[in-house]
């Protein structure tokens, strides 16, 4: 499967990366080269093979339903949460107005 300029533009849009026409033109052969190369996986017989789910056998742990049990993963830290915000506004994150 090879991609054309339109497809690359669509992927860039899905990925929210603004691209110029020049970027697109450069990306098409690059991505096609990589995709053609990874497509050799298609020749592997995977009949009856399950996709990997956990690389090292391990089961999902569950945590107790306790608020702020570990301060590192708890709330009540608004200043820390907003400390790096480009546009903090009265305790909120500001973003350009969204029209729904």
């Amino acid at each position: 499967m090879s991609v054309d300029t339109a497809t690359v533009a669509k992927i860039a849009s899905l990925a929210r990366i603004k691209v110029t026409e020049a970027d697109l033109t450069a990306m098409v052969p690059e991505l096609n080269g990589i995709l053609a190369w990874v497509e050799q996986l298609g020749e592997v017989d995977v009949t009856g093979v399950e996709p990997m789910t956990a690389v090292i056998p391990n089961t999902q742990r569950l945590r107790d339903d306790v608020v702020n049990a570990d301060p590192l993963t708890g709330g009540d830290i608004r200043d820390a949460v907003l400390a790096n915000a480009p546009a903090p506004e009265h305790g909120f994150f500001g973003v350009p107005k969204v029209i729904e």
Partner: peptide, 11 residues
């Protein structure tokens, strides 16, 4: 792509 790759990863 992805599912196939995860199967090959199993192998």
């Amino acid at each position: 792509y992805y599912t196939q790759a995860q199967k090959v990863r199993t192998l």
